[in-house]
Amino acid sequence: MDMAAFNERVIEQFRANRGRGRIGDRLDASRLLLLTHTGARTGTRRTTPVMFLRLKGRLCVIASNNGAPRHPDWYRNLVAHPEVTVELGDETFPATAVVPTGRERDELFAEAVRQHPFFAEHQDRTERTIPVVELRRTDA
């Protein structure tokens, strides 16, 4: 599957429907956000559709990469350039990506697993610790 082409279709449909309804036959747009970030090496702005969760009142994304051995590219970009733009539903706002560590990360990840048990399966597939990323709105 060509992930770039797939993501472009998801982004197009998400924006056309203002983050509501279904995208194709598998994705619920209300569980996705569009994350625009800056490439760590290239400096190029990129937009990636990502599933989001509300964890302890925080807007978060999980860098599980489906349990792959490497972090997703978007995560490495956020670490290098934490200032991002979030499109959530029909709202667009600036945010700062913050990566909790230690006990704070563990508690947030445990809540993510409670909400979506497949994250535990993703963690079981890899030796890396799957990061949780909080997207802190900066225009409020």
Rank of each mutant, 00 (worst) to 15 (best):
F6M: 13
F6T: 13
R9C: 02
R9A: 14
V10G: 10
I11L: 04
N17V: 02
R18G: 02
G21L: 12
R26C: 02
R26H: 11
D28K: 05
S30T: 15
R31I: 00
L32G: 02
L32I: 05
L33M: 13
H37G: 06
R46I: 05
F52T: 08
L53C: 02
L53A: 13
L53I: 01
L53E: 12
R54M: 14
G57K: 05
R58M: 13
R58W: 05
N66P: 00
P69S: 10
R70Q: 14
H71E: 12
D73L: 10
W74T: 09
R76G: 15
V79E: 11
P82Q: 08
E83Q: 15
E83L: 11
V86A: 13
D90P: 05
E91P: 00
A95K: 10
V98A: 14
T101N: 02
R105H: 15
D106L: 04
L108Y: 06
A110Y: 03
E111V: 06
R114P: 01
Q115S: 01
Q115K: 05
F118N: 01
F119R: 00
H122G: 01
T126L: 10
R128H: 11
T129F: 04
V132L: 06
V133K: 07
L135I: 10
R137D: 13
T138D: 12
T138V: 11
A140V: 12
